[in-house]
Nucleic acid binder design. Structure first.
Lengths: 328, 328
DNA sequence: CGAGAATCGGTAAACGTTGACATAAAACTA
DNA sequence: TAGTTTTATGTCAACGTTTACCGATTCTCG
């Protein structure tokens, strides 16, 4: 590009003023010809931003992870920002390590899924280093950072109320990982629903799982071995609900004829299971989109007009084929 | 850090020589104290690398995506490189667009899952711009770039031979998306297996799907509506196999009593379905790990010692509860 | 036609780090 | 002790852009 300074090239490609149409055109053609692409590191250096957004999660369920990612990516799709995935196991036991990982990743901002979004130590670190963050369905300290929530207790209430309204009273409960605040919130909703129905929760019918299929299976076997057997099982996610269905079938029980099963999350497995599982749709995609949207707005300095830093999304009870009135 | 030049700080933190122990110690303490982190953009600028690895995929199946990611991340876990996810729909119809996306993302290297890994136009672009790439299970031009493969035809042979050896002869086939070369390779294996068993494929029992549950369901309904009904269904992935099981049940057929079903991929759904689905384990995680490993070796200039650029991984037939001899 | 404004192109400096090289100090060697 | 090597520290420039600023040219309008 003889006789043209880098400055002029920059101006031409960025559609900045002070360049004649002729030169701009010539530069653009030459750039295309030579496969020229501006160096992102140099741009980052001067702009003091990396145009990288991080996403950290722990939950193993593939469909949850993919929903999160797709939601965030949907908002990033113009290609200006890029999404870096940073899964991290056992946040609860070493939040500072995750903090260091995130801070060293050179991000402009980060999206935190549960349970990382509820780690005060982590939030402290991010705030101290002024790394903006969006929290997806946190359960505590809702005034810190950008927050996107769903009322887990209300959702838990809805699914429990559904079983109760069908007439079930002996209802087994398979809890998720107790270190996830979601587990607590959902349980709270279950309790309220039982109270509203004038029923009481039999603590002997509560088993702690960890959101995985395998542990869910053992938990279900345990519940189904009790006498009298529960007529329904409330699982705190769909993987465990699918496991409960498999356990019932392995014992020769029909679902929902002998046992109703309800899950939580509207994950892939709830649709591919047979019968399809009654569950709660958590709008994970939308929430991730929303969190990314507001995070980027903040990064781009448009946060003057944003409205509330917190936004709530509605759950949805999906009644499918795995629940029915109790036998007799 | 009075009286110490940036150069010295750089040397101290990078454990470079020419720094006294005392100064190094002091610098490190001060860095920790002040929460100092070197600017990655500046480092990238001078090193001429971004320490970003891209991962592009199209297949919608969540467990496949997560396996890919986790495999690659497993190799990247020291935190030196970061993983950027760049899903892209319909590569076949606009490979150049994906190419531009990848080239503009400022990556040091990129991992290509099917079907992107089989797009010559894309490979041309990447080679022209000297962006190193690792291809996960490509089916053509196996001499370009870093290649990690599995013998899809052999795997297809194995699963088809399993059904044939159980005595099935009327076998329905649900194909995946024909634009994925995997679909072709698997089909080739099915054909060989039929040939080896002295059986022939009834083309009327072949239906084209697209690897998704919903289309798989319709395809299965179509097959099961034929008379005489097939006694087994070979689905080209697990999502479609799960759909076939659901379709059978909705018609009142028992699996595997009335109908055997086999899938492909050993994805989550093959384990959470009931009965668990006979399938092929594609070592997606290991392949992604391997591709990342060799890509990074190439980036780090260790490619002098690498051995062959191509590596094959073995499939594994997992016989589970969804297959049995045909009725009567 | 001339004053002021808008437009065009260019130069210098900066972003934060590291490589190459120079100098100063300390540690050995004979 | 003088000479020589080793170690420590510092200076300069460079990576590839963009921002700030400056002069030169062209346009506008009284």
């Amino acid at each position: 590009m003889a006789g043209v300074t880098p400055k002029t090239v920059s101006r031409a490609l960025n559609d900045a003023p002070h360049v004649s149409k002729a030169v701009r055109q010539k530069v653009k053609e030459a750039a295309a010809e030579l496969d020229y692409l501006p160096n992102l590191a140099a741009q980052s250096l001067i702009a003091r931003r990396s145009y990288l957004i991080g996403l950290t999660y722990e939950r193993p369920s593939p469909s949850y992870v993919v929903d999160l990612q797709n939601g965030a990516l949907g908002r990033l799709e113009d290609g200006r920002y890029r999404l870096v995935v940073l899964p991290f196991a056992h946040v609860a036991s070493r939040p500072d390590e995750l903090g260091r990982l995130l801070l060293r990743a050179g991000l402009d901002g980060v999206l935190l899924a549960p349970p990382a979004c509820d780690q005060p130590v982590l939030l402290d670190m991010l705030e101290r280093h002024k790394l903006p963050f969006g929290r997806i369905t946190p359960h505590s300290e809702l005034d810190r950072g950008i927050v996107v929530t769903m009322d887990e207790a209300a959702a838990g209430h809805a699914v429990a109320a559904h079983l109760l309204s069908l007439g079930h009273r002996r209802i087994g409960i398979i809890l998720g990982d107790p270190s996830h605040a979601a587990s607590v919130g959902r349980m709270e909703g279950y309790r309220r629903a039982f109270g509203d129905a004038g029923a009481t929760i039999d603590e002997r019918l509560m088993v702690t799982g960890d959101f995985t299929y395998d542990v869910g299976y053992s938990a279900a076997r345990e519940l189904l071995g009790l006498a009298p057997r529960p007529t329904a099982i409330l699982a705190q996610n769909d993987d465990m609900a699918a496991a409960a269905i498999a356990a019932a079938r392995d014992l020769g029980l029909a679902v929902p004829g002998d046992l109703s099963v309800a899950g939580f999350d509207n994950s892939e497995v709830s649709r591919t299971a047979w019968p399809q599982i009654t569950t709660i749709n958590q709008p994970v995609r939308q929430m991730a989109w929303d969190a990314a949207d507001r995070l980027i707005a903040a990064l781009d300095g448009k946060s003057d007009v944003p409205g509330p830093k917190r936004r709530d999304h509605a759950h949805e009870l999906l009644v499918r084929a795995s629940t029915a009135p109790p036998p007799d």
